[in-house]
C-alpha cells in the first residue's frame, strides 16, 4: 500500500505519544514550524495505558500557550488512529496540511524574516 502523503510533513518518531512533551511542541513552533500534529493510538488502546491521553492533555496545554503568545492554538492538533490504518494516516496528513495552508505560515517566522 504505497500511499502518498504531503511532502512537507516531517515525521518525528517517538516510542509512544506519552513521550511528547509540551516543550517539544513549543520548540517546534519557536524554530519555525507552521503546524504540529500528534498522532497517537486509539484512545483506550495505549500499550502504556495513558500515553495518548497524556499527549492529548499536552496538546491542549500547547494550544492555550500558542493562543496566548499570538501564534495560534489552531496550529496544533491531536489525532488518533490504529497503527494499521495507513489510509487514515494519509487522510489526517492531508487534512492537517490543508488546515495549515489556510492559516498561512507561522507568524513568528514571517516577523523574524522582516526584522532581518
Amino acid at each position: 500500500m504505497r500511499l502518498q502523503y504531503p511532502a512537507d510533513i516531517k515525521v518525528v518518531r517517538v516510542p509512544c505519544t506519552g513521550k511528547v512533551d509540551v516543550l517539544h511542541i513549543l520548540r517546534a513552533f519557536e524554530k519555525g514550524a507552521d503546524g504540529v500534529y500528534v498522532v497517537g493510538c486509539m484512545e483506550g488502546d495505549c500499550h502504556f495505558n495513558k500515553g495518548n491521553f497524556r499527549a492529548r492533555k499536552r496538546v491542549e496545554q500547547a494550544k492555550a500557550i500558542l493562543d496566548t503568545v499570538g501564534v495560534g492554538g489552531e496550529r496544533v492538533r491531536m489525532y488518533n488512529l490504529s497503527s494499521s490504518e495507513a489510509p487514515r494516516f494519509v487522510e489526517y496528513a492531508k487534512e492537517m496540511d490543508q488546515r495549515i495552508r489556510e492559516l498561512g505560515p507561522n507568524p513568528i517566522k514571517t516577523k523574524k524574516a522582516k526584522a532581518a
Binding site: 500558542l66 503568545v69 499570538g70 501564534v71 513568528i108 516577523k111
Partner: peptide
C-alpha cells in the same frame, strides 16, 4: 512562550 511572544 516568551521567546515566541517577543518574536511575534
Amino acid at each position: 512562550a516568551l521567546r515566541m511572544y517577543f518574536m511575534n
